[in-house]
Design a protein around this nucleic acid. Sequence first.
DNA 1: ACGAGAGTACTTTAGACAGCATGTC
DNA 2: CTAAAGTACTCTCGT
Length: 730
Amino acid sequence: MKIESLDLPDEIKRFYENSGILELYPPQAEAVEKGLLEGKNLLAAIPTASGKTLLAELAMLKSILAGGKALYIVPLRALASEKFRRFQEFSELGIRVGISTGDYDRRDEGLGINDIIVATSEKTDSLLRNETAWMQEISVVVADEVHLIDSPDRGPTLEVTLAKLRRMNPSCQILALSATVGNADELAAWLDAGLVLSEWRPTDLMEGVFFNGTFYCKDKEKPVYKPTKDEAINLVLDTIKEGGQCLVFESSRKNCMGFAKKAASAVKKTLSAEDREALAGIANEIMENSETDVSSVLEACVLSGTAFHHAGLTTPLRELVESGFREGRIKLISSTPTLAAGLNLPARRVVIRSYRRYSSDAGMQPIPVLEYKQMAGRAGRPRLDPYGEAVLLAKSYEEFVFLFEKYIEAGAEDIWSKLGTENALRTHVLSTISNGFARTREELMDFLEATFFAFQYSNFGLSVVVDECLNFLRQEEMLEKDSDALVSTVFGKLVSKLYIDPLSAALIAKGLREAGTFTELTLLHLICSTPDMRLMYMRSQDYQDINDYVMAHADEFSKVPNPFNIAEYEWFLSEVKTSLLLMDWIHEKPENEICLKFGIGEGDIHATADIAEWIMHVTAQLARLLDLKGAKEAAELEKRIRYGAAPELMDLLDIRSVGRVRARKLYEAGFKSTADLARASPEQVATLVGPKIAEKVFKQIGRKETVPESSDIESLEKGFPERQRTISDY
DNA sequence: ACGAGAGTACTTTAGACAGCATGTC
DNA sequence: CTAAAGTACTCTCGT
């Protein structure tokens, strides 16, 4: 099917023809035949890189030029910015694109002027909770990676959000994009969608198992070049020899770094002079971005043409690795599953060195077929590689047979809704009521009828859990107690709006109510005891230290559990360990020191601080609303966590381009406040932070604006009742 | 006396969304 | 129902 023959305005056809796209891929053509351009709902369950994005674009553009608005929902921030950048190319068609994620965001109402909005599923949920007006104008919703409905922690949000969008806007077209799953037909039926099911790929994929020096595929086998005694390294060298690049998946960070190091010397020998020069440039940038032990290891690897990639790396470092690979300079990336689900980063050959992954309740388990397919699907760069190869490694004949049967010949698992637990449902019950989507239990059940859970299990299964949620929310005073109707309290509305788990909010309120005096530690531990926080693992060497610390600071914790209750005490120690990480951070311990002490990467510090900052913000807001002690302390800690700095630097940190390090330098030199700086000589300041920064500093302290107090509570009290919509409005 | 190699005990184990208001070194 | 791989350390044996 030709682009020219599609029912689209000429300008769109010309846009694609100019970029060299003249003809649709077979699955794309099938989607068009099934009503993609006529506003029909569709589920496309097709492999990565077989043109899902184009499908979405055609549907969105068609609808927008007819006066509509498109929402593109993704699971990852990184994916949101990738799509955002791509869709910005439509600006020549006069189409405006916006992005909304937790970290990168424009004002929500202002977002509404855009024709396409890219958002994460949680952000979409949050926009719905805040009753963002433009959401009613949406005419197409694209749900990318919709198989994530199966995920226990994030799937429920996705399905509830889709159900709400459809309820609010029944005429809206849904285009769901999914990896191949066992029950795609069931998912399609839930969405009232046509199904496009295909295994077609633009580049051939040879999947197979490597055993005894030979790569066995379904219908062929080939021997592999054998210069070293490590089979995985041989597979890498074999690929490089044929002019390709290699992606190796590992199941732990340690192994992932280990393999990149191990392969380095052999890969280095294959590099051209030109490669070496480019790699030296990348290595340089790495060192400019980070000065930890891990980044030095990465630098050494990159100089040899290898790299590793995992969530312990900061975003800039990850991006350097990704772009070095895309440019063909880095020949091998050894990665944890970070790269499997995320960005589009294809390679000639993918080697899955470890198909098992640890889970705390069942030990090492084979990964699901769906995850294997995501990794294998990275093999083969369209237009650059003649074919792609996905290789599993077997150590014995039994394993060889097992791998072949499980991953190559069998299909992917079915996906199952995970909405049916109190933990998953609690927050969505509250937000549904708080928004006016449901005013009675009947309306609530009626709404939940539209979820994938109800579709799969019938919503009878939800009834008991819903009552548990309602009881909890009433008991915690997030819902009015003595009303048969479902009415959220001001507290409940704030909890819903701040996007925190109601259980976290209840724990925070209780902690603030019961605490006598607050130290930094009290508040940090309070937020770490919340289910929204992500905790550090305890290593065997940690027990002694953390335990001693608990003994020394026992009076600063709201409650220390009995050490004989092993499970509970163990959990408590993890909370304390995480609190101590945050303590070091807000006391300006250097990043590398924190990494070594806690056995984590720089990326983990920032991720932990990011969540902590959010929950501390929530704590301050809740304390203010409920008139509890600690509001001021929490607000100060929120800011300290944002910058990772001690309290005496707070004034200096209001200056832009002054962070924890520069502020400390200025402070130690005697400039303890903006007022001190106003009296300082420019030369003095320039020697401390450099002339450019000094200039910026002086520009600002002349006209320093104070930030107005946040207005969450006021807007709730004033603005909400009359703005509140009910289900009958839709 | 020293070192290679086998055997053993111990340790560790992926990823990542959200609020708010704008720029770290 | 319920793990495995890497590593650090120890022991043994041969030179």
